[in-house]
Simulated scan of single mutants.
Amino acid sequence: MNAGGWTRRDGLAAMAALVGGAWLPPVARAGQLEEPLADSVRTALSAAVANDTPPVPEFFDTERRLAYLRWLGANSERLRRRKPDFQTRIEFLQTVWYETRRAGLDTTMVLGLIQVESGFRKFAISSVGARGYMQIMPFWSRLIGDGDVGSLFHMQTNLRFGCVILRHYLDRERGNAFMALGRYNGSRGKSEYPNAVQAAARQWAHPDA
């Protein structure tokens, strides 16, 4: 291992990722582990990902709408380097906002997770086959989706799966974000991944988040 903490294997994995068009940090190489699901859990998760409601935020008062617009504007600027096209940025952030609130998640934490998992690359594929923004393992499409693995590259589908899965892990861990993030990465109980997500999340912090 060199002074920066990289091993030769890390370097080879990074080269392979670059060749495949997806830069993935070493910490995100793992993926969710397939585990047996109770029928009631499978049904609930399937229903949660099947709802095709358009990701359009709704607000019941002007102040909440203004807070959202301030958040959207600030994070659009932060995301400009990674997503130069304005409309693409806005649609992505709007969908993240919608899906995180739909799942009862911290939007800032999910942005940190996306940064660590895929570097905001829509078509990222990890060395273990995890796909898209939130690096969804293909088995989830079979377990709770329609079996179409290709749909995991669709923006809203990927974000919805990721948010529903993270919500499931948070519920299993009784709200413990550290353990839930570890489970999401397939490294439950280890600190590297949760710490990386929390560090990345601080870059997306905003008073109106």
Rank of each mutant, 00 (worst) to 15 (best):
I114T: 10
G150P: 11
F139S: 00
R121D: 15
F153R: 12
E99K: 02
L152H: 13
D146I: 07
M134L: 12
Q94V: 12
V116Y: 05
P138M: 07
V110Y: 06
I90H: 09
E117P: 08
F153Q: 08
L93A: 01
I114M: 10
I90E: 14
G119I: 14
I144P: 12
R131V: 03
G147D: 13
A130T: 07
G150R: 15
R131S: 08
L152Q: 09
M137A: 03
R142L: 10
Y98I: 04
V96G: 02
T108S: 01
G112A: 08
V128M: 13
G132W: 05
G147E: 14
I144H: 12
I136L: 00
G132V: 14
F92R: 04
K122T: 14
G132F: 08
E117C: 13
V128N: 13
T107F: 01
W140T: 10
Q94H: 04
Y98H: 10
Q135V: 09
G104I: 11
W140G: 10
K122W: 07
S126I: 15
R131D: 08
F120P: 03
L143K: 11
T107H: 03
V96L: 06
R142C: 04
Y133H: 05
P138I: 03
L93Y: 01
T100V: 02
E99I: 00
A124I: 15
D106C: 04
W97N: 06
D146M: 06
G145W: 11
Q94T: 13
T95I: 01
V128E: 12
F153K: 09
Q135L: 09
M134C: 07
A130D: 07
A103D: 06
G145F: 10
I114Q: 05
G104C: 06
A124R: 15
T107E: 04
G150H: 14
M134V: 15
L105P: 03
M137L: 00
V110G: 02
T95V: 03
I144E: 13
G147M: 11
G132E: 05
A130V: 07
G119M: 12
Q94Y: 00
A130R: 09
G119P: 10
V96Q: 03
D106Y: 05
G104S: 08
M134W: 06
R89N: 05
I144R: 13
A124P: 14
Q115D: 15
R142E: 15
V96H: 03
W97Y: 11
L111Y: 01
G147A: 13
A103L: 11
L93M: 02
V149N: 06
F139I: 00
M137W: 03
G145P: 10
F139R: 01
L111N: 00
G104M: 09
F92D: 04
E91M: 04
W97F: 08
A130Q: 09
S141A: 15
I90M: 12
F92A: 04
I125E: 14
G119F: 10
L111H: 03
V149G: 01
Y133E: 00
V116P: 08
F123E: 03
E91A: 08
F123L: 15
L111Q: 01
I136Q: 02
